[in-house]
Each structure stands twice: as C-alpha cells, then as structure tokens.
C-alpha cells in the first residue's frame, strides 16, 4: 500500500537578493512500513523536502499525498523529529511525552494509556516523574521519539535526528529507534548526512543531486534478513559496497 506519494514537487525560496530553487521535479512514493533514508550533498534541500511532506512549506508546484489525502497544512498523519530532542526542561518526562496530545487536544484515557505503554515497552518505566536533565542523551532521544509516537502518526520524518549525539550514544540510539519503529510498523523517512547511518537503517536510500535537488537514484538495500540490527549491518561485506557506491556518487558532485 502506498502511504506517501510525491508528485513533481518544486520549491523556490524568495529572498531579497534573489530566488533559489531548492527542489526540482521530485517524484517518489513510499510503501507502508518502509524505512527510506535520504542522502545528498550538504545544502541540497534534504530538510526542505521533509518540510514539504510535513506541510510546513507549501510547494510552488506539485503535491504530496499522505494516506490518500493531499497535504495542505500541518498534517496529523505525520510525526517530525528534529536534530535536538527538544524536551522541555520544565516538564517531567511524562508531561513531555503528553505534549503532542495536549496540543492536538487528544488527551483521552486511551491515548494516555498508549503513551504509558510506549514508555514501559521502551525501557522508560519509572522515569515518568524525572526531569529531562536527569536522563542520558540516549534516553532523552527515546523520550522524544515516544512523544512523537504518542500522537500515533502514520509517517515519521527524522531530520538529522541523531546528529547532535556523541558517536557511541548515536549507535545505541540508532538500534533503539530502528527496533521501535519496526516494532510499531511505522513508515519512516530519514534525512542524514551520515552515509553509514543511511545504509544501516534504510530499506531504500534516496540519493539527491546538488541544488536544485532532484532524485538522482533510489537504491534498494538488502542484507538478506528481515530483522536487521543497524549496528550489526555495519560489519557485513555488503555494507562496504553500498558505502563505496554512495560515497562515489556524492563525491561526483564535488
């Protein structure tokens, strides 16, 4: 089932000193439950693409359909995770997790129960009354993910979501987040500048060209297993091949 469908997206930015075309003729679709990594040269418009899908930016041309509905504003089908965990320091973990539901006026007992289950399932039981400053970086990122999952989005957008973490935490969080997302059967689009991260998590990798970005290639990633562990993938022979290929492609842009 196609859950996301992007048609001929074009985005132009207007500034005082001119016009910049960020995205040009982007066409792709994503199946339910898929994990798509998006890589491209820095500044090519990867994050702009996510913003369009999330409804933060209206494209100048083309359209995005999520779950069969055209995106016209902030879509409730979509959960967005940014670079920092953006937990509110003055709220407890529990209050942080409920923020999205609060904003969307969906604080029903069922939804609260769901949020509680998520915390329990992913190793945060007993931390509800703690404050973000009392948690490790990895745990904070997990709380941020649960906050996003609590509103039950169909598609998750990760915008360099792990790049603020130190390397070791980052690897741990990658495994955590990947298993949570697969467990919850969520569709995910992840923008990253880390090629290894893109390969180890993605079912497919979308390679964008330089600005104005268009899709250069979509690469299928297959490690011959349905249940992969991202960090474990990094040591397989296939991984290096994917890495070299993408590295060469990116370098070709200079």
């Amino acid at each position: 089932m196609k859950i996301l469908n992007a048609q001929n997206i074009e985005v132009k930015y207007q500034a005082e000193n001119g016009e910049i075309t960020a995205l040009h003729n982007i066409v792709f679709s994503v199946e339910k439950g898929e994990f798509v990594s998006i890589v491209g040269p820095s500044g090519c418009g990867k994050s702009t693409l996510l913003s369009v899908i999330a409804g933060l930016i209206t494209p100048n041309k083309g359209s995005v359909e999520v779950c069969g509905e055209k995106v016209t504003g902030i879509s409730q089908h979509i959960g967005y995770m940014l670079q920092n965990d953006n937990l509110l320091e003055w709220r407890t973990i529990w209050q942080n997790v409920l923020l999205g539901l609060e904003i969307q006026n969906k604080l029903t007992p069922q939804n609260k129960e769901r949020a509680k289950k998520l915390l329990e399932n992913y190793g945060l039981a007993g931390f509800e009354q703690k404050y973000p400053s009392q948690l490790s970086g990895g745990m904070r990122q997990r709380v941020a993910l649960i906050r996003t999952l609590a509103v039950d989005p169909d598609i998750l957008l990760l915008d360099e979501a792990f790049s603020a973490l130190d390397f070791q935490t980052r690897l741990e969080v990658t495994d955590d987040v990947y298993s949570i997302l697969k467990n919850e059967n969520k569709t995910t689009l992840m923008v990253t500048h880390d090629i290894s991260e893109a390969i180890s998590m993605g079912d497919r990798i979308m390679l964008l060209s330089q600005r104005p970005a268009s899709i250069k290639e979509i690469i299928n990633v297959d490690f011959g297993t349905d249940k992969r562990i991202p960090t474990a993938c990094r040591t397989t022979a296939g991984f290096t091949e994917y890495f070299d290929y993408i590295w060469k492609e990116l370098k070709a842009y200079g």
Binding site: G79, L82, L88, G100, I103, Q104, V151
Partner: peptide, 21 residues
Amino acid sequence: SPELIKMAVTFGAQKRQIFQK
C-alpha cells in the same frame, strides 16, 4: 529556541499554544 517552537509547530500548535506551552 526556534527548534522548540518548530517542534510544537510540527504537532500542529497554534500561536496561542506556542506561547502558552
């Protein structure tokens, strides 16, 4: 922090909610 505000916006927060929360 504009990041905090963006986070709230992606949940669909109105201006009043952004201010309040």
